[in-house]
């Protein structure tokens, strides 16, 4: 049900290393290249952000845990390129051809980078329904945390927050549903809410009874409490 990326609340990771204030933005030159190749390949339009997140999450647990951050990006990208038919396994083996690709006309040009980054990818969508929940209302998350459309599929409900009761803080309007969008099932927009949970609703031994955790959750992740 769960995947290794869903690590909120896990024990055993040790201290956080805050690093040095003058740390470079990219620790290695290849980190910067990995980010740029991923963004530029995304501009070919053969997948969406939810699919690329899912590609990283689907890495075998031993790969996920042994790869550094940008190694995960590049592995997810290679897998997506083959899955979507942009490249073949022969290409990755270095046995493909160098003919100009049918998608080459869509390649991101340097002169278009600023506009593409400025445009981004807004996730809000028009919605003609009425949000089921109002600010202040008590809601409970579904349990288990799982994609209800695709078994083992992408979802944005973390396991640590499954089956917990919280309170709606605000509605962000309707947003693209990752559980559908990551699997080519359309955008399926539905209301998105910030829901606040007392730490005691999530953890056996909260650090402080006053503390809270807030998550952004889609309507279909929630039921009235």
């Amino acid at each position: 049900m769960t995947r290794v990326h869903d690590m909120g609340g896990r024990f055993g990771d040790g201290p956080v290393d805050p690093g040095a204030p003058d740390e470079p933005i990219f620790a290695q030159e290849w980190h910067a290249r990995a980010l740029a190749v991923t963004l530029a390949a995304g501009a070919l339009g053969q997948w969406n952000l939810d699919m690329s997140r899912h590609a990283r999450e689907r890495l075998a647990p031993r790969d996920y845990m042994s790869f550094s951050y940008f190694e995960k990006w590049i592995a997810g990208l290679a897998d997506l390129l083959v899955e979507t038919g942009v490249l073949t396994e022969a290409d990755l083996r270095g046995q493909g051809d160098d003919a100009v690709h049918p998608l080459a006309a869509r390649a991101l040009k340097s002169g278009d980078v600023a506009a593409a980054l400025a445009r981004g990818g807004p996730a809000d969508r028009p919605y003609d329904g009425h949000p089921a929940f109002a600010p202040g209302q008590a809601v409970r998350t579904l349990r288990p945390a799982a994609n209800r459309l695709v078994d083992g599929g992408h979802t944005r409900l973390p396991a640590y927050a499954a089956g917990a009761t919280g309170r709606v803080l605000r509605c962000h309007g309707a947003h693209v549903l990752p559980d559908a969008h990551a699997h080519g099932r359309g955008e399926a927009p539905e209301p998105l809410y910030s829901v606040v949970f007392p730490a005691g609703a999530l953890w056996a031994a909260p650090e402080n009874p006053r503390d809270e955790v807030t998550l952004d959750l889609w309507q279909s992740y929630l039921e009235p409490a």
Binding site: A36, V37, A40, A41, L103, V113
Partner: peptide
Amino acid sequence: LLARKGLIEPAALDEIIDT
């Protein structure tokens, strides 16, 4: 591989990194 097939433009990568 991607550059040889015309799928990415190396100058666009430089632009993203500079940003």
